[in-house]
Design a protein around this nucleic acid. Sequence first.
DNA 1: TCCATTTTCTTGATCGTTTCAGATCACCCG
DNA 2: CGGGTGATCTGAAACGATCAAGAAAATGGA
Lengths: 360, 360
Amino acid sequence: MHADEKPCERARTLDDLAKAVGVSRTTASNAFNRPEQLSAELRGRILRTAEALGYPGPNPMARMLRTGRTGSIGLLFGDTLPYALDDDTSIALLKGLARVCEKRRSGLLLLPVMDDAAAAQAVRAAAVDGFILYCLPDGSPVVPQVLERRLPVVTVDSVSVEGVPSISIDDLAGAQQAAAHLLELGHRRLAILSLDLQTEEHFGVVTRQRRSEIHYRPTALRLEGYGAAMREKGLDLRRVPVFECPGNSEEHARRATLELLAGRTPPTGILAMSDRFAIGAFQAASQLGLQVPRDLSVVGFDDIPLAARFRPALTTVRQPLVEKGVAAAEMLLKKRTPAISRVLETRLIQRESTGPAPGR
Amino acid sequence: MHADEKPCERARTLDDLAKAVGVSRTTASNAFNRPEQLSAELRGRILRTAEALGYPGPNPMARMLRTGRTGSIGLLFGDTLPYALDDDTSIALLKGLARVCEKRRSGLLLLPVMDDAAAAQAVRAAAVDGFILYCLPDGSPVVPQVLERRLPVVTVDSVSVEGVPSISIDDLAGAQQAAAHLLELGHRRLAILSLDLQTEEHFGVVTRQRRSEIHYRPTALRLEGYGAAMREKGLDLRRVPVFECPGNSEEHARRATLELLAGRTPPTGILAMSDRFAIGAFQAASQLGLQVPRDLSVVGFDDIPLAARFRPALTTVRQPLVEKGVAAAEMLLKKRTPAISRVLETRLIQRESTGPAPGR
DNA sequence: TCCATTTTCTTGATCGTTTCAGATCACCCG
DNA sequence: CGGGTGATCTGAAACGATCAAGAAAATGGA
């Protein structure tokens, strides 16, 4: 039809394609993006020629530059990627985000966050329409970096940033229920297995000094919740040992529990800030020949899928893990990201890992 | 110093910044990308002004367009994203990929793959330097779409594509070991819990017809491996029921096992193509009051983290899940993606879910 | 038949970088 | 003193698309 259709040469740009078909570049562009702007016949011809020439469609980078939209959102973890993927709660968040992204046909870019420098670079170089910040600690230097990009941002389980919408859970109420439950059962000698308090990792019972400066919001709130329940019973959180275990690892929790149980006044009830910690505590107990919940009660946090299936099944604080992701992604992908914050509910799930305090 | 520094106005482009400092655009660009091209003094001044003006660094889209590099790789699943994130093997792959990406400071873009149309669009629009294709079935229409982009590609556990490097595991040998193990223990009445054979989901014992057309390479190879072990003992794979369970779900495997055990000649040994299936089989057994491995032996596949912790601990075929991801990402991120394929080893791990055939 | 309207296609500007090929300048050496 | 040599810095040309505005062609109504 057109003499200058050369199927031998590959078309790399819209111009090549347009020339091959014998139309203008804009028309070729419209064939891809605005079907209503040209006759069906011509559109068909352009698309067929594109196919024949092996033209892979408009270059994404050029399109992004021109339109300013990228069609994907960036996810920034407070921890390194492989580490986050070891954690059931992050996976669940990811699942929630993915659900929404897929529905909206948006990509989900996992940003590398090895160290602060790498994270900063990743944030500057990310071709995204917005950021989700997950588990970022107070004072993290990447937060200002993100804000500088002037893109929509939603934080999840992070430090609260002025003017930035956030999704979080009611950590305080959840922790309060957990502690109230143990106290209700008559436990008076409690111990806490705590998530990281500060960005610098630490393993051991924390000093009053360290307790007073907590970088991670959920940790702070959960501690506060535990304390609130204790106050109601006339107990003092400051007298309860808080054992900090870095990185939500079972192994650390196991060793921590071992240490706690070896103390002069071993706890009868353990408040674990995660289900992984609770499982670690189980391991310590069984290692010492103690039975859960007969000799030791443990209440976890999160209600990860494993919690219900574990024997003994975990008594734990359920938080809507996947929902958090859904809410965050939806908030971010809204036309105008609303400047509101949502606090999702938590609720104690009683299963088999808690019982009356021994000697009652 | 320079009269035209206006800290009130935000600099949006390199030009703005350059003008504010009183240098050329190129120099401003060099301040960010080529420190050796300008004096330290000037560079410092440019960077400081950038900070002061709130310039977030060179626009990523423009940079990508110009350089042709994006600094991230795309991951395409054969299944929808939320579904893939429900699967421990995908998570492990992700972990491997993430490890390498983080080391190389590359992003990892999860592409939405709701349906073929969405996947095609996502592939065309993805700003990536290469693709990883995971678990893509034979005849998937997105494969040609990906190839059209003329970017490096590495397939993982997928249909093999001419000229495209691939990472896979020795499915055949692994399955063969699994079956040989059961046969060795005296089991003669076997049944297979199979992963998807074809893209159209199916739940039930498969016909000979369906067996002959398998879209998923690992499934085909594992079946072949089971058959090879059987042939050695004079058995015929075609006489062994193959129960197809869609989507690696425990629940389907449980129901499948229930059906199999209710048949006229219930199996004494079950070859599960995944650990999830094996766990489903456990549930069915315990539901019928059968003991594993006394009454029923089950051998899984994958060796997911849960396999060792489960009671009874799973006898299963270990495949290097994380390693697959590492290998794939490294291959893709090499300067010149090598056109070779790697087949990683598999190996039977004997634990507690297999024992001698009853009545021996 | 002719003007108004709609459909269809084109022109030219623009998005914000990077990069190549100089230009400028001081400096050093013979 | 003249020219070679680095060290710094600049100008202009891409990179490949989209979009607003306008031209050309087709359509319709009186």
